[in-house]
Design a protein around this nucleic acid. Structure first.
Length: 274
DNA sequence: ACCTACCTGGCC
DNA sequence: GGCCAGGTAGGT
């Protein structure tokens, strides 16, 4: 998917477009994308409401509505959330269209259908068991070094597996987990218990700078990702390890190595990362 | 702490 | 036809 920088780009794109708009109509094409509530209740509750704002935690977006509930959107691997004019052709795999009171539409498009839509208050969604358990957002104010070092603990699993675990830290995916490990010079396969405090400090800083740089470039469009207006990001050409297996390391010129870790393709420099 | 399933599409 | 892909939940 879209990881934290891509989701952040979508949110900053859409927030000014959606805030203050009223939802005139809701058309849910593929009911299974909506995990809660049922489609009829969803339409009855969202139509007529005004958008109060938009935010994100990790990769989960929230479109907050005036009555205190909201539409939560997770883009999965191939989701797109865009605003456009109604005359724009509706792409195949468009699963939700919200008509807005300025005449435009908010559309959710997702070929692989790995994304999810949730509607309600956070309390309601937690009670229904459909709200994801998310650790701190690495760009949030509560992401202190103490908290990061603590949540890693001294487990046995590889450091990259922990970085991908959204219940520990919310927002890193396969691209930025690899990029963060490279920036911190830590091999992604290293067991957490073997990562020193100094290295955790390096990784803590690396995660934040890696994400911030990508946000400045409006995220990476490796394949399907598009911003809130349907345009690709610009960061894909600046990735140092992801997608560069076999290519020379930018530090030492040695070939980057690819392995499978936690079920995911993982690229690192065997010389620079120990 | 893994492993598989869930989907479609693109590439070899 | 088989393999791979930015993610996550659910089961072992």
């Amino acid at each position: 998917m879209p990881e934290l920088p891509e989701v952040e780009t979508v949110v900053t794109d859409l927030r000014p477009e959606l805030t203050g708009r009223r939802v005139r109509d809701a058309q849910l094409g593929l009911a299974k994308m909506l995990k809660h509530p049922d489609p009829v209740t969803f339409a009855a509750r969202i139509v007529g409401q005004r958008v109060a704002g938009m935010r994100r935690h990790g990769k989960l977006m929230a479109i907050d509505l005036e009555q205190g509930d909201g539409l939560y959107v997770h883009l999965g691997m191939t989701g797109r959330l865009t605003v456009c004019a109604p005359e724009e052709p509706v792409l195949k795999h468009t699963h939700l269209v919200l008509a807005l009171d300025d005449g435009r539409e908010l559309r959710y498009h997702d070929p692989r259908q790995f994304g999810r839509l949730l509607f309600g208050t956070e309390v309601e969604l937690r009670r229904a068991g459909v709200f994801p358990r998310l650790g701190p957002d690495p760009l949030g104010g509560d992401f202190t070094f103490g908290r990061f070092a603590g949540l890693l603990g001294r487990r046995h699993r590889p450091i990259k597996a922990a970085l991908l675990d959204q219940s520990l830290i919310a927002g890193l995916g396969n691209i930025y987990a690899d990029e963060s490990c490279f920036a911190a010079r830590i091999r992604p396969t290293r067991r957490i218990q073997r990562v020193s405090v100094a290295e955790r400090r390096a990784l803590y800083g690396a995660i934040q700078t890696v994400l911030q740089k990508s946000i400045r470039n409006r995220g990476s469009s490796v394949d399907d990702y598009r911003d809130g207006f349907g345009a690709p990001g610009n960061h894909q050409g600046y990735l140092l390890v992801y997608g560069r297996a076999g290519a020379p390391c930018v530090q030492c010129s040695g070939p980057l190595k690819k392995v499978r870790l936690a079920g995911r393709g993982t690229v690192y420099c065997p010389r620079c990362q120990r």
